[in-house]
């Protein structure tokens, strides 16, 4: 078994932590370690994942209470040192709420919890998280009530100009339009990085796209991260 270990931060209410651990172990070929939110020390930080689900009931705003956890304080410190951080779903919401990523995730435009397949255009295939995906469109499931990405005009312009947008919702053929925007996100944004490009936040779930009998684009995603370790 390889020695390298990836940390997964766990909050009360996280429910994608185990799926994520299985995806990482099987397709990134490394061990995983859960870090409970009240730990202020993260021992293994070659890469850190913040999983989906909920955190602290998502009270007040999705993800905001988690940003005050001791473990998150450590994530923020390490993120600023350049450690690769990936936040999925609630993890993305947490990363925007603690200002590691721009913008915010609002209630879906249709006010419904959406659980569906989604097609994503790889908008920037040069980022460390996407350069090995080897596809222009991938399919990952989405499952969220607050995934409607919003940012101020200035932030949005910066995100676009700096190529920080990694994934956009699209059709199976890669067409980006209103019809293929499940939650009302600005410019169909589904995943972004920070300016330094070491932090990725995304609403879709690659860890749920690794099943043998279903879509397997998640395997590409996790395989593609190998060179970061």
């Amino acid at each position: 078994m390889p020695k390298r270990i990836i940390s997964i931060i766990v909050f009360p209410g996280s429910n994608c932590d185990r799926d994520l651990a299985i995806a990482i172990q099987n397709h990134l070929n490394v061990k995983t370690q859960y870090v409970w939110h009240d730990n202020s020390k993260i021992d293994n930080y070659e890469m850190i994942f913040i999983p989906g689900g909920f955190s602290f009931g998502d009270y007040l705003r999705a993800g905001v209470l988690a940003t005050k956890s001791p473990a998150l304080g450590e994530v923020i410190r390490l993120a600023k040192k350049g450690v690769p951080i990936i936040g999925i779903c609630n993890g993305f919401q947490i990363l925007t709420e603690c200002n590691l990523l721009d913008g915010t995730l609002m209630n879906n435009k249709n006010q419904l919890f959406i659980c569906d397949k989604s097609y994503l255009k790889i908008e920037n295939n040069k980022s460390i998280f996407s350069k090995n995906l080897k596809k222009s469109v991938v399919q990952f499931p989405i499952a969220h009530a607050q995934g409607n990405f919003f940012a101020s005009n200035d932030s949005l312009k910066e995100l676009e100009d700096n190529n920080q947008i990694i994934f956009r919702y699209c059709s199976k053929q890669g067409v980006i339009n209103e019809k293929n925007n499940p939650n009302g996100s600005l410019n169909n944004i589904a995943g972004i990085t920070n300016k330094q490009k070491n932090i990725l936040g995304m609403m879709p779930h690659p860890e749920r796209a690794i099943n043998k009998f279903d879509d397997q684009d998640g395997v590409l995603f996790f395989n593609g991260l190998k060179e970061l370790l």
Partner: peptide, 8 residues
């Protein structure tokens, strides 16, 4: 820092 999100 907590109660409001200055973005929105």
């Amino acid at each position: 820092d907590l109660l409001s999100n200055p973005v929105i």
